[in-house]
Write a protein that binds this DNA or RNA. Structure first.
Length: 310
DNA sequence: CCAGGTCAAGGGAGT
DNA sequence: ACTCCCTTGACCTGG
């Protein structure tokens, strides 16, 4: 299956309503609850639209609950209503065999040298897992919570050791869902780095990002990197990321190499394997539909998709 | 009313 | 020391 991330550009629904610090302090939990309920209600509408458009894979927004590390969900005045709506989403997802994931932001650094950052990260990841639990999503890599390692100093070895030690402090509902993705910078973590330094110690699956691999340090072939990542997914179908270069799309060498394009311009390299893929492209849902029209109808390069229904 | 400045967070890289 | 960037987009103020 292929899917997209958070925002639907066709519909007028929003899953991202949030607020600034000052507003959070002046308006408080009542306003948080209002926005959160609107966000999850709109997310259900998006899932309904996704089904109609044959999209069963979707990345949820981490901005679903504004400032969620600062309170307990059950403290929201409209928690009952929120819980019901999340459960409704859960039923819908289960009924239609949809797959949902999270990709918490780059501020989540589990291997950080700063203990406060580690504490905040554990808190934030726990909140993500709690949302998945309320929805009723599996406590497995079927519903991944995917992060980067990010930090590299003083060395990848030191940071990844800290990452693994702190992994063991996470609650089970995070541990059972956490995955780690390769980076797009030369100095950061390749799939092989993550395999050797993290997967081999704590068994956390690796999310292969094809574009990051192309931009990053290629210490293996792409096929080897993909195979390494796929081999780490034992209790769920592997999830990967795919995007195209904005620099190439716009034919403008001044655009940053790592910037994502609006649409996808090359097929996902499967090397014959089956896995799920998040399309990371600015045109979001439109990029997925465009991808299917261009690549799947003609070349059947993703066997998991139902070609007849496109 | 809306354009544009600004916005929680960590860390690294570039200036 | 400062700015920009990340999966970026959304918030909010002042004109």
């Amino acid at each position: 299956m292929i899917g997209y991330c958070c925002i639907n550009t066709t519909l007028d629904y929003c899953v991202n309503r949030t607020m600034r610090k000052a507003t959070f302090h002046s308006k408080g939990l009542e306003y948080v609850g209002e926005l959160a309920f609107q966000n999850i209600s709109d997310m259900l509408e998006i899932l309904i639209w996704n089904l109609k458009n044959d999209i069963l894979l979707y990345r949820m927004s981490s901005d679903m609950f504004p400032w969620m590390s600062e309170y307990s969900f059950s403290d929201l005045p409209n928690y009952k209503q929120i819980k019901l709506k999340l459960e409704e989403i859960g039923k819908y997802v289960k009924q239609h065999n949809m797959r949902l994931s999270f990709h918490p932001g780059p501020f989540n650094v589990l291997g950080s040298n700063n203990p406060n950052v580690v504490e905040k990260t554990i808190q934030e990841l726990t909140k993500h897992a709690q949302i998945m639990d309320i929805i009723g999503l599996p406590q497995s890599h079927e519903s991944p919570i995917n992060i980067h390692v990010s930090a590299t100093k003083p060395s990848k070895e030191v940071i990844s050791n800290q990452f693994c030690q702190n992994f063991n402090r996470l609650p089970q509902n995070v541990k059972s869902r956490l995955t780690v993705e390769n980076d797009d910078k030369i100095a950061q973590y390749t799939p092989k780095n993550i395999y050797d330094l993290i997967y081999s110690k704590i068994g956390v699956p690796i999310t292969f990002d094809q574009f990051h691999f192309v931009c990053g340090n290629q210490d293996t072939s792409m096929k080897e990197a993909l195979e390494l990542c796929l081999s780490t997914w034992s209790n769920a179908k592997a999830l990967t990321h795919h995007s195209s270069s904005k620099r190439i799309e716009q034919d403008d060498p001044t655009v940053k190499e790592t910037a994502h394009s609006d649409y996808i311009h090359e097929p996902i390299q499967t090397f014959g394997y089956e896995f799920d893929t998040d399309i990371e492209a600015k045109a979001k849902d439109k990029a997925v539909i465009n991808y299917k029209n261009i690549f799947i109808k003609k070349s059947n390069c993703l066997k998991g998709d139902n070609i007849d229904n496109i």
